[in-house]
Amino acid sequence: MWIYEKKLQYPVRVSTCNPMLARFLIEQYGGADGELSAALRYLNQRYSIPDKVIGLLTDIGTEEFAHLEMIATMVYKLTKDATPEQMKEAGLGDHYANHDNALFYHDAAGNPWTASYIQAKGDPIADLYEDIAAEEKARATYQWIINMSDDPFLNEGLSFLREREIVHSQRFREAVELIKDANSQKKIF
């Protein structure tokens, strides 16, 4: 079970109404390498992985939902009072026709989220390597969005999220080392 804390992991501020940026950011919401994919991937893989790394997948999967919530807040703020005209100008006319200004789980190109973005192979190395790759892909996505964003407040939040991808990648890499060495003595540094 989970305990919900009614605050964001990192405060989200947005300086201007910018539906175009929201359109790019939605990649991290419902895209293949987005936070939803990450959370569901880790929280599902954890049932069939060696005991010593289950906790890591639970922790990181949980944190991904906190990131999802931050992205949602960013997208919401960037589009909150955008008029249909502004949505159209930002290339969000198709989105508006279907969803008004509501959020939806799709990528920047409008493809709906699908479970085929994630995998549970049941092989610990295959699964952890997928997780490491997922973190690096998410880090890269944040970089490309930062490259296109001119919103300094938003970039603070994005930089925080990118740094978390680095830390998660590090921990998954350590998880690989742990299960590789499962039968040997504890390492002394």
Binding site: N147, F160, E163, R164
Partner: peptide
């Protein structure tokens, strides 16, 4: 650490647009 996103200076690697 809360602001930077990591407790560890060894893992802190800030990013800015290299093409700007």
């Amino acid at each position: 650490a809360l602001k930077r996103g990591t407790l560890w200076p060894a893992l802190y690697a800030p990013y800015s647009n290299p093409y700007e």
